[in-house]
């Protein structure tokens, strides 16, 4: 999509807008994201250790039930209407881990339930998460290809 060039009057106005537009508090947001992201990771690690000990699994296998549990927690908090309230403060700390992925799918599922199971939930479940999957797969394909082609891969 070609960006239309601004005429001088528009450009002058955009400068004015920038003057009044408050900036998000990056330092505060980064701090909360760091702490909340750390808490999420700590919880994930605790679950991994727990499943490793209880089910007698090696760490790489114990991560699977741990991730599933984190997804469940993210989905549950979304369904209870709590996720968006926590995310308001946690920001990227909650959005980047798998909890954010769970939230994007469950919130869409809840939103479009009224439009039916097939054309509503089924079709729109990935309305937010879809591009994560698409570009995740594309990136994995490219990295895999490089891994196979490059010497020493």
């Amino acid at each position: 999509m070609p960006a239309k060039k601004l005429n001088p009057k528009q450009a002058a106005y955009q400068k004015k807008v920038k003057k009044y537009e408050p900036k998000p508090n990056a330092l505060r947001n980064a701090f909360f994201a760091f702490v909340s992201g750390g808490v999420v990771c700590l919880l994930g690690q605790a679950l991994t250790d727990f499943f490793g000990a209880v089910m007698d699994l090696p760490p790489e296998k114990a991560a699977n039930p741990a991730v599933a549990s984190m997804i469940f927690i993210g989905a549950l908090l979304t369904a209870l209407g709590l996720f968006d309230r926590i995310a308001k403060f946690a920001g990227a700390g909650l959005a980047v881990p798998v909890t954010g992925f769970a939230n994007s799918m469950v919130s869409a599922a809840l939103e479009f339930r009224e439009e039916g199971l097939i054309l509503g939930v089924g079709a729109k479940l990935f309305s937010l998460a879809g591009s994560v999957i698409t570009f995740g797969v594309v990136t994995a394909f490219i990295v895999g290809l490089l891994h196979a082609i490059l010497p020493g891969g």
């Binding site: 408050p22 947001n29 968006d84 308001k88 954010g100 939230n103 869409a108 809840l110």
Partner: peptide, 17 residues
């Protein structure tokens, strides 16, 4: 919000403006 932005329960941060 649904029509113009995100699902109600989606956890995004709102801009100060």
């Amino acid at each position: 919000e649904r029509q113009y932005r995100y699902p109600t329960e989606y956890g995004g941060q709102r801009r100060p403006y």
